[in-house]
Design a binder for these strands. Structure first.
Lengths: 110, 110
DNA sequence: CTGAATCCACGTCGATACTG
DNA sequence: CAGTATCGACGTGGATTCAG
């Protein structure tokens, strides 16, 4: 989890970007918001253009930042689940605003 | 209340990210929203940690994407102004959500 | 199944110098 | 003042392999 001294960069938008500026983090959060809980392989299926390596990396960063909660079930084969933490759920309005804009305005430009 | 998944076509968040995923684009937009119009040197002053090269590049991309309007006044020395287009102004809720979260989070950890 | 580790091509970015 | 051009260091990300 980031400490306060790392967090306040003098611009509220930039403070937020620290947590979601990873190339795919917002999209990952979008899908987890939509499904509540997702396994690694389910995220892979929903983000086919993201390599396994990058997906794992972004998930690990989101977990380290306290945005995602990762649960590992020691069965064989291993099963992991990702869901948002309380902090992560507070990002819902941000992701929602992106989703709304993407839904309504993207056709305008391309 | 309208849910963000009602008009789900693929991934709307990713569509939005194509326009604002640049490392500093959201912060640039935040400052222009706040000030309505900003010159290049004013943006430089507000983003001292961004190199001139990167600032110019991000501004150029935002302009090419129809988010920003750039006006050049052929005086000496040259004077340029950046403001949001109509499309750019539609991104206000997204930037606002980021600013709100960043502000709330900063207050939370203090 | 869920990753971590390694290699390597590629892109990004800062610094500097230059132009109109 | 507002950029562009060039270069080199650095980071990113894909492919592959390995491990628990």
């Amino acid at each position: 989890m980031k400490e306060i001294y790392d967090c306040d960069l003098g611009c509220p938008v930039q403070n937020t970007l620290q947590f979601i500026s990873g190339k795919w983090k917002s999209v990952i959060l979008y899908h987890i918001f939509k499904n509540d809980v997702l396994r690694f392989s389910e995220l892979q299926a929903k983000l086919p253009y993201v390599s396994k390596r990058m997906l794992a990396k972004q998930l690990s960063e989101l977990e380290a930042d306290g945005i995602l909660d990762k649960r590992v079930y020691p069965v064989i084969p291993v099963k992991t689940e990702y869901r948002v933490t309380k902090l992560g759920s507070s990002l819902y309005p941000v992701i929602e605003a992106m989703a709304i804009w993407g839904t309504h305005y993207t056709q305008m430009v391309k």
